[in-house]
């Protein structure tokens, strides 16, 4: 099966500084890939390149068989930015109603999305009065409205309580089971276990990729946090040699 996303030799320069140094990565379709790495490692830039929002220096990004940013992809890819990108002066339903109209979805999808992210009961509340976690979920709901084939979610679970995080991960697995491909970024290692595949990035380069089991086996570590550290240490020793 062709990969849902294929990135080849991706270089990105931001503010005169190269932040991605030749990324090569393939993402399998119908699976949840976790994009893990510390803050500032280039996760958001890579995601922006995948959704076609990033000016790239060189390299190829192919999404669902098409060059990233192709017009037809705009209705097939859902993107949740890291900062909640919703209108603070609209209610939950008004926000989602607007994005649904843009995406060609209806009010049924709005109701579904509200239920999926657990914002039931807050429909008539202004976004500016929501908590940080509620805002993040509203922003996520906006990315779910048109049932996209690929969901690119930038740190969707940051700042959420453990119960909500578990519920959202169950939602992600349900979406993947229905055939969607998910790319989920996080800087918290304890979410790595919930992903089917992992891509670890650090300082704009891919450190390692594979299933959680493969990474544990490769490093001999007992859990993924330790595996990440072992890979960082290995890369640094390799670099200084």
């Amino acid at each position: 099966m062709d990969p849902a996303i294929s990135v080849r030799g991706l270089h990105v320069v931001r503010g005169g500084r190269e932040v991605l140094h030749g990324i090569d990565v393939d993402l399998a379709a119908g699976r949840i890939t976790g994009l893990l790495g510390p803050s500032g490692s280039g996760k958001t830039t890579l995601m922006r390149a995948i959704v076609g929002a990033q000016v790239v220096e060189s390299g190829d990004v192919t999404v669902l068989g098409l060059p990233a940013g192709s017009p037809v992809l705009r209705s097939r890819v859902g993107y949740q930015t890291q900062a909640p990108s919703v209108y603070p002066d609209l209610t939950v339903t008004e926000n989602l109603g607007y994005f649904a109209a843009i995406l060609g979805s209806g009010s049924a999808q709005v109701v579904d999305a509200i239920a999926t992210v657990g914002l039931g009961g807050l429909e008539r509340q202004l976004a500016s009065t929501l908590s940080g976690g509620e805002l993040a979920r509203l922003s996520l709901a906006a990315a779910l409205l048109n049932g996209p084939e690929l969901l690119v979610l930038d740190e969707p679970t940051v700042g959420l309580d453990p119960v909500l995080r578990r519920d959202l991960w169950e939602t992600f697995h349900r979406l993947a089971a229905d055939g969607a491909t998910l790319l989920v970024s996080s800087h918290v290692m304890d979410e790595a276990d919930r992903c089917d595949d992992l891509v670890l990035i650090r300082e704009g380069a891919v450190l390692a990729s594979g299933t959680p089991a493969e990474l544990l086996e490769q490093t001999g570590a007992r859990e993924l946090g330790a595996a990440f550290l072992a890979l960082v240490d290995g890369a640094e020793r390799g670099g200084s040699r």
Binding site: V51, G52, A53, P71, R74, S75, V77, Y79, T81, A83, P84, S85, V86, Y87, P88, F99, I102, L103, G104, A142
Partner: peptide, 13 residues
């Protein structure tokens, strides 16, 4: 600045 424009421009609008 809020990111809503970036979101809109990744949609078919």
């Amino acid at each position: 600045t809020s990111g809503t424009l970036e979101r809109l421009l990744t949609t078919p609008i």
